[in-house]
Design a protein around this nucleic acid. Structure first.
Length: 613
DNA sequence: CCCCAAATTC
């Protein structure tokens, strides 16, 4: 903004006798020859640069669009020049000028203000009338609406976005599927599923050209909502209509089937890809490797990882390395994780916050807090921003080592960096305190979290329920459970298991079984924790036959008893003097590849002494 | 479309 312009404003604005038109003309003249020099003067004058004047200047075709933009920004950033900042009309007027001049980036930033600034909120009809009175070419107005549609989507203003879409439709503007895609992706990102599906249907009704991208986004929305069956139907429909799914479509479904642990579903998609001639991309490999790892098939995952390296045309990326590194860490093979980390760097790939996060979690799991701190320093020296997850991982590491104080120290550092403690932090600290049996402090942490307005989640409630259950206060445990339901937080297997264990320890087996039925009604499957608690409960209260029956029931449900389950039953049988059965179970346990611990041996030894037979 | 964090059993 030149000083010439500023003088023009200064010269004309106090003169109320001049007409708006004259003032606008003088400013325009100054702007036409304005250069890019920054404004050197402090704006001092009071002025009455009213909306009409601003409109006249911005719509003056003799003023170059770029200079209009600078004038506009000057007004926005110097409120003392004009008491009224540019209004919605000024934004639309300027945006049209910028579109015509093909200054798309600038136009977008102007429209972004319309979509994000609450003071500029205006209805679509007001915007349309602003656009109309500027008598721009329809092509330019169409471009403006198209961009506005996208910008509303970017700003989560879905209602307004839809209004723009409908306006374009009824006014006969051409609709670009790519803009609809921006809108669909934003809806999916913010879990607005109903709107997502409704909008897609609207696209179909309105005869917007539908491509694989839109359908894949809708399939992704259905998958995110765990409605994989519906996603699958949509896939079949698209194929029937002659729209060929691409790697993204297939990967979305593979990911969904893996998440719901539908083995057959994954296989079906893989065969469909093969039949369709769609090859794997790096993401497909990443998903399959992750899947094999979660199923404990690490050798198969390694094979896929190798195959990816040998395959022509595909280059392993940092994601796939991170998945492998994460799994080696989770399996306790931190050494191999570091080997992969080195080869990743050797290949010229850049480890990111996820990669470091996986490694830090790995060394924390091995109790190597010093190594974790070194990795943290390394991240910082590479300029990788520390996020919440990194801090939480470290805090959890310290808590698992029983160093709750260190965790709190990190919490303070994190908060000092402007990262407010979230529900994870409190859950981690509370769990750390629980580990040390400091239940009262743990409760205090969680309750004070709620007082601060942090919303408790399923883990928070489950931790509280577990604390009360362990304290034998099932009345309070149940009260929290009801509160959780009232607040709309869904209990999961862990929640029920905590309650069931509480009832078992109290000897209230009836209520424990009642809870097991309830979880099944809700579609939750009793797992090895559920059964172990029940087996232990029956053993504790002398009903050993019921315990054996439960134990046998597990096989039918494809649940593998673990060391804890075996230990509970072996010690139950031993106490009853059923030594033969106890030893038979011991053999079974070792044959299953489980390593008995001291508890088992002392039970077995005890069974020999106290034998009733 | 994929990569890092929290809760349950002897």
């Amino acid at each position: 903004m030149s000083s010439k312009l500023h003088n023009a404003i200064k010269q004309f604005t106090p003169a109320s006798s001049k007409s708006d038109r004259q003032i606008a003309k003088a400013i325009s003249v100054a702007l036409i020859s304005s250069t890019k020099d920054p404004l050197g003067l402090e704006p001092t004058c009071n002025s009455d640069l009213n909306p009409q004047i601003i409109h006249l200047v911005l719509s003056n075709p003799r003023v170059p669009a770029q200079n209009c933009f600078r004038f506009f920004n000057f007004l926005k950033t110097n409120p003392s020049v004009t008491p009224q900042k540019p209004n919605s009309d000024a934004h639309i007027t300027l945006a049209l000028r910028l579109f015509k001049a093909r200054k798309f980036r600038e136009a977008k930033s102007v429209l972004n203000a319309v979509a994000s600034d609450d003071n500029l909120r205006s209805s679509i009809s007001e915007i349309a009338s602003s656009a109309g009175k500027n008598s721009s070419e329809p092509r330019i107005v169409g471009k403006l609406f198209d961009m506005l549609f996208r910008v509303y989507a970017d700003n989560k203003r879905f209602k307004e976005g839809l209004e723009v879409f409908e306006h374009m439709l009824s006014s006969g503007f051409e609709i670009d599927e790519r803009s609809c895609l921006v809108y669909l992706i934003a809806l999916k990102k913010f879990d607005q599923f109903e709107s997502l599906f409704a909008f897609f249907n609207r696209m179909v009704e309105a005869n917007v050209k539908i491509t694989v991208y839109s359908i894949t986004t809708v399939i992704g929305g259905l998958c995110k909502r765990r409605e994989v069956d519906k996603a699958r139907i949509l896939l079949d429909e698209m194929v029937a209509k002659g729209i060929k799914p691409n790697e993204f479509t297939y990967n979305t479904l593979i990911d969904a089937y893996i998440r719901i642990q539908d083995f057959d579903g994954v296989q079906e998609i893989l065969s469909a890809m093969k039949k369709d001639g769609v090859g794997f991309n790096v993401t497909t490999y990443t998903l399959l490797i992750h899947w094999r790892c979660t199923s404990g098939k690490i050798a198969e995952a390694e094979k896929l990882f190798e195959e990816l390296h040998e395959k022509g045309g595909l280059t392993p990326d940092v994601h796939v390395y991170t998945v492998m590194i994460n799994w080696y860490c989770k399996l306790g093979n931190v050494k191999q994780a570091f080997v992969l980390f080195d080869s990743l760097v050797e290949r010229g790939l850049v480890p990111n916050v996820h990669t470091y996060g996986a490694l830090i979690d790995g060394v924390c799991g091995a109790g190597q807090m010093g190594a974790a701190e070194i990795l943290l320093k390394e991240m910082q020296s590479k300029g990788i921003d520390l996020n919440r997850v990194i801090f939480n991982t470290l805090m959890d590491g310290y808590c698992k080592q029983g160093m709750v104080g260190e965790a709190r120290r990190l919490q303070a550092i994190m908060e000092g960096k402007g990262l407010e403690a979230d529900v994870y932090v409190y859950n981690i600290i509370a769990t750390g305190l629980c580990k040390a049996k400091r239940y009262d402090e743990a409760k205090k942490v969680l309750f004070s979290m709620m007082d601060k307005g942090v919303v408790p989640n399923t883990v928070t409630y489950t931790t509280l329920i577990d604390i009360y259950s362990k304290e034998g206060n099932l009345v309070e445990a149940k009260r929290i459970f009801r509160e959780m339901l009232n607040r709309g937080e869904k209990p999961n297997e862990v929640t029920y298991n905590a309650l069931i264990d509480g009832y078992c320890k109290k000897g209230n087996m009836k209520e424990a079984y009642q809870m097991r039925s309830e979880m099944q009604v809700k579609g939750l499957t009793p797992d090895v924790y559920t059964y172990t608690s029940l087996v232990h409960g029956e053993c504790m209260h002398g009903k050993i036959d019921s315990a054996v029956e439960l134990f046998n029931e597990m096989h039918g449900r494809l649940l593998a008893p673990n060391v804890v389950t075996y230990t509970a039953l072996i010690s139950g049988l031993s106490k009853e003097g059923r030594s033969d059965e106890a030893f038979r179970l011991y053999d079974e346990m070792t044959e299953a590849g489980l390593t008995p611990d001291d508890t088992v041996y002392s039970s077995l030894v005890g069974s020999l002494h106290g034998s009733k037979s």
